[in-house]
Amino acid sequence: MQQIIYFFIKYRNFLLFVLLFSIATYFTIQTHNYHSDKFFSSANVVTGTLYNFKTSITTYFSLAKENKKLVEENVYLRKQIEYYKDVTEPAAIDTTIFPLFDYQAAKIINNNYAYTKNYLTLNKGARDGVVTDMGVISGRGLVGIVSRVSENFSTVQSVLNTNSRTNAKLKKSGHFGTLVWDTQNPNIVQLIDIPRLTEIEQGDTIITGGKSVIFPEGILIGVIESFRPDDFDENYYVIDVSLFTDMTSLENVYLIKNNFAEELYELEMSVSDE
């Protein structure tokens, strides 16, 4: 018995190190699965409140730039309205039909892009109706997907996260692929699984595919920067996409809620059960 106690005292630092290191490794591996329950996230009261406080000060320094962005977005939206005015008579709005997607504004209070798995923190939480798996876009394009929600805050898995997989397509030809990130550059993401038969060109626009419950079809993502054959399968392209959204300076974003997400999810589950 004395031997055992002596052993523990002698090697206490090593044993403590192994224990704490294992716990830390466990936390790290937890972040590798998107849907696993993480123990900690920045969407808690302490960090959320501190980040909120920081943002309430720092936003003043970028007001002019942020205003310019919002005005640009307004111009873009006005142009779209003008286009539809010419094309058709405005359709009578049927208020009994629920729109498929609903939008809500939020502010980013913390933004990471230096890691390989990056997250953003938003100032909206469960109290504002935010739920996990809601899409997040900026005025210019795709940003990420809500991964964790607390009472007043939420964290967003950015497109700049190696776990991120977003359905995207070429605007011109309509070919579908998957958007991933190779961690090299915070402004460039990769579109994979596009067959070599597709005709593509530098400068082609990439938009969301609409084959997911999370994003509506046609949300802007970016333009083709360059492309090359996939190292693993010569029949497919790897396309470098330069993002429209500047992920390094984000402030105002929109949350997208699919009003039929639950119904669609239940339907898909019942199909896969059979």
Binding site: N13, F14, F17, L20, F21, I23, A24, T25, Y26, F27, T28, I29, Q30, T31, K38, F40, S41, S42, N44, T47, Y51, N110, N112, Y115, K117, Y119, T121, T155
Partner: peptide, 23 residues
Amino acid sequence: GLSIDIFENSGGIHAAASVFAAY
């Protein structure tokens, strides 16, 4: 390390590195 990790949503990478350095 864990305090930094919670702020950064980085799991336990800072905690692991700090414990390693301290040991």
